[in-house]
Amino acid sequence: MTSLFQHGTLAMLMGKQMQGTITVGELLQHGDTGIGTLSGLDGEVIILNGQVYQAQSDGQVNHITDETTLLPFASVHFDKPTKKLPFNTVNFETLSDKLKDSKLHNIFSAINFHGEFPHVHVRIVPKQIEPFPSLLELSTHQPEFTKDNISGTLVGYYAPEIFNGPTAAGWHLHFLSDDKTFSGHLLDFSATNVIGNLQVFDEFVQHLPLDNTGFRNMELDLEGLHSGIEASEGGKK
């Protein structure tokens, strides 16, 4: 059995619950690879080989070594590839088509590959303080960065449409350059010399912050939730 572990939900972030509710140390017990964000939506997190990196909204990248650092939302898994990726070149628009033979539309899966990137376009959410806004309110005020001709690693997940709300349906991808100076949530990319893997999961573990008062008292406006998540995530599905 292969498991994808997710702490928190995107619906929580839409509901203005951005306080950290799991530590880095606790999260790493459930996986060595993944993506997420820090307390207050402080940047974009990518986890590779058990190491945690944070892209800040000023464009800097930090190596997070303090295991007490808190996250409100993250997805992780132990890297145990299902199969090698069947392509050498890819971009955001062609990713799903190149994997159509894997029939991913009804299952959770992870992609993890290294490559040369002629173009990368990312956004990085800025840190928020209480009282928190909704994720949708932040979607039009997120710094964006581009970089051309850079090598690095792409990590992220595909989620079925039926799970839109707990997570983001479609692809949710983060990038980290080899020199650890450029990272973020991918809005667009093109890649060549791709070497990496696809991993599919037969178990999705949803972990909720039951001891957090804000989460327990949260009232969600479900109308427009899915369109709000799509707008806040950006990128191409």
Rank of each mutant, 00 (worst) to 15 (best):
Leu95Cys: 03
Pro131Glu: 09
Gly34Val: 03
Ile111Arg: 09
Gly43His: 00
Gln29Lys: 11
Phe163Ser: 11
Ser3Thr: 10
Gly59Asp: 12
Pro166Phe: 04
His30Gln: 00
Phe117Ser: 03
Ile124Tyr: 04
Thr23Ser: 15
Asn112Ala: 07
Val120Cys: 03
Glu44His: 03
Leu154Glu: 08
Leu71Gln: 08
Thr69Glu: 12
Ile47Phe: 04
Thr21Val: 06
Leu225Cys: 00
Pro81Asp: 09
His172Tyr: 13
Thr68Phe: 12
Leu4Phe: 12
Asn49Trp: 12
Pro86Lys: 01
His30Ile: 00
Arg216Asn: 13
Gln128Trp: 09
Pro81Met: 05
Thr37Gln: 08
Thr9Phe: 13
Lys127Met: 14
Val52Glu: 08
Gly34Leu: 05
Leu70Ser: 08
Leu10Arg: 13
Ile35Arg: 03
Ser75Phe: 09
Arg216Ala: 11
Ser3Phe: 05
Gln29Pro: 01
Gly214Ile: 07
His172Trp: 14
Leu4Asp: 10
Ala169Trp: 07
Phe182Tyr: 09
Asp101Gln: 11
Asn164Thr: 02
Glu137Cys: 07
Leu186Lys: 01
Tyr158Glu: 06
Leu13Cys: 08
Gly228Phe: 11
Ser96Arg: 07
Phe117Arg: 02
Asn149Asp: 11
Met12Tyr: 09
Asp178Phe: 01
Asn62Val: 12
Ser177Ile: 00
Gly196Ile: 06
Gly8Phe: 00
Gly34Gln: 02
Leu222Glu: 12
Gly8Trp: 01
Gly228Trp: 10
Phe189Cys: 07
His105Ala: 15
Phe175Gln: 01
Gly31Ile: 01
Ala74Phe: 02
Leu27Ile: 13
Ala55Tyr: 04
Glu93Gly: 09
Leu136Asn: 09
Ser96Tyr: 10
Thr94Arg: 05
Ala55Cys: 05
Gly36Ile: 07
His226Gly: 06
Gly115Thr: 04
Pro72Tyr: 05
Asn164Leu: 11
Glu130Phe: 12
Thr33Gly: 06
His63Gly: 03
Asp32Asn: 08
Lys237Phe: 14
Lys236Pro: 03
Phe92Pro: 00
Asn193Thr: 06
Gly40Pro: 05
Ile47Glu: 08
Ser232Asn: 02
Ser96Glu: 10
Gly36Trp: 07
Gly214Gln: 05
Pro72Glu: 08
Asn149His: 13
Val200Ala: 11
Thr82Asn: 07
Asn164Phe: 05
Asn212Asp: 13
Val52Arg: 02
Gln29Asp: 15
Ala168Phe: 15
Leu99Tyr: 06
Leu187Lys: 03
Leu28Val: 06
Leu187Arg: 08
Gly40Leu: 05
Arg216Trp: 10
Thr153Trp: 14
Val194Trp: 02
Leu4Asn: 04
Val200Ser: 15
